[in-house]
């Protein structure tokens, strides 16, 4: 993935970097510096005003995420790119296990298998078992955030975009999530926004620093932190 000269009024400008397959890139920077906007442009929730973002698919195909058709974006969202939002989204009237199982159902996997897989994630994320068939709208921030993460991981995406996935978690849950992110398939590329620098040290291969809505630096955690 290359991001070249992306620009958005008030959002961010002049951001250029590339991420290798399987690499973990962390984005850090003060609040309002444009981190979430940058990530949302990669997922096309925001439209970039200029610049390009080239996504290299397995088949050798290259898609510019800023100009690809809506259907092309939907196809890679379904099959390749996952996104964990900063604000916790819940699917109304759907119990936790089904919120997580839904991406598998969309792929045609049977309900029982999908629920089994979903329960596995709930267990690993240490969600109490009596919450599995409860509605996440009543969950705590940290519980919801873990449901969100499970829903993204269950797709086994090639590229996973994470916007402060541990911001609402206590240290023990953070450690669980960090462990899970470290454990994902080494072919998975991840780009994640974090405030907690100890998490960045544990996870990131490289770090992008955003400052005043621009990119202020890039390097290994040792160089940057």
């Amino acid at each position: 993935m290359h991001v070249l000269g992306g620009k958005k009024i008030k959002g961010f400008e002049d951001v250029s970097f590339s991420v290798k397959r399987g690499e973990f890139l962390a984005i850090i920077g003060s609040s309002g510096s444009g981190k979430s906007s940058l990530l949302k442009c990669m997922y096309r929730t925001y439209l970039a005003d200029s610049g390009s973002m080239l996504y290299h698919g397995d088949s050798g195909s290259v898609i510019d995420l800023t100009t690809a058709s809506d259907h092309e974006i939907l196809a890679i969202r379904r099959n390749e790119v996952g996104y964990v939002s900063q604000l916790l989204q819940v699917v109304p009237r759907t119990i936790a296990v089904d919120v997580i199982a839904e991406p598998l159902l969309q792929r045609g996997i049977g309900i029982d298998d999908a629920r089994d897989a979903a329960s596995g994630y709930l267990a690993r994320l240490r969600i109490p078992e009596d919450l599995w068939d409860a509605y996440p709208s009543t969950f705590s921030g940290g519980e919801r955030q873990r449901v969100n993460i499970a829903r993204a991981l269950i797709r086994a995406p090639r590229l996973l975009l994470l916007d402060e996935p541990t911001s609402a978690l206590d240290p023990a849950s953070t450690a669980v999530v960090v462990g899970m992110l470290r454990g994902v398939n080494p072919g998975t590329t991840m780009i994640g926004i974090f405030h907690d620098l100890s998490v960045v040290r544990e996870l990131a291969d490289r770090v992008v620093v955003m400052k005043d809505n621009r990119m202020a630096g890039i390097g290994t955690p040792e160089e940057i932190l």
């Binding site: 949302k40 096309r44 929730t45 925001y46 439209l47 809506d70 974006i73 939907l74």
Partner: peptide
């Protein structure tokens, strides 16, 4: 305007 629903809602043009 036409676009992905999340884009229409979060970044309307």
């Amino acid at each position: 305007e036409t676009g992905l629903t999340d884009q229409i809602l979060e970044d309307p043009q």
